[in-house]
Amino acid sequence: MLVEGPVEVVLDDGSTVVSDRFTVALCVCRRSRSFPWCDTSHRSREKRHSA
């Protein structure tokens, strides 16, 4: 999800992370190693094909 910045995100544990970039990609799939920021980890998931 793209959000116009600056952005302040409050995580589940109550901690806050901040980005001062003008556009920020937030991770909504929770696969990112840099959560809550998107690192495109969702792209590496293998697609399942029907037999």
Rank of each mutant, 00 (worst) to 15 (best):
38 C>M: 12
47 K>V: 07
27 C>D: 11
20 D>M: 08
43 R>A: 12
28 V>R: 15
22 F>C: 03
22 F>T: 12
18 V>E: 14
28 V>W: 07
41 S>V: 04
27 C>G: 10
8 E>R: 14
40 T>W: 10
11 L>Q: 07
3 V>S: 04
45 R>H: 08
22 F>D: 15
49 H>I: 11
49 H>N: 09
24 V>G: 00
13 D>V: 03
8 E>S: 14
19 S>C: 03
9 V>H: 02
28 V>A: 12
4 E>K: 13
45 R>C: 04
14 G>S: 03
12 D>G: 08
5 G>R: 06
46 E>R: 13
50 S>M: 07
34 S>T: 15
30 R>M: 09
44 S>V: 11
37 W>S: 07
5 G>D: 03
19 S>P: 02
33 R>C: 01
39 D>C: 08
25 A>M: 10
51 A>R: 14
14 G>A: 01
16 T>G: 00
24 V>W: 00
20 D>V: 06
8 E>W: 05
34 S>W: 03
23 T>D: 04
40 T>D: 13
11 L>G: 02
44 S>P: 00
1 M>T: 08
42 H>V: 06
12 D>K: 14
27 C>A: 08
12 D>E: 15
1 M>V: 11
6 P>R: 02
17 V>Q: 05
1 M>E: 11
11 L>N: 08
3 V>G: 05
43 R>P: 01
18 V>D: 09
35 F>C: 03
46 E>W: 02
18 V>I: 13
45 R>M: 14
26 L>Q: 00
25 A>K: 14
35 F>N: 09
21 R>K: 06
12 D>W: 06
12 D>I: 03
48 R>W: 09
33 R>A: 11
13 D>H: 02
10 V>A: 09
29 C>E: 06
14 G>Q: 01
3 V>T: 11
6 P>W: 03
28 V>K: 07
7 V>I: 10
20 D>N: 15
20 D>E: 15
34 S>I: 09
16 T>P: 00
26 L>A: 00
27 C>L: 14
24 V>T: 00
4 E>G: 07
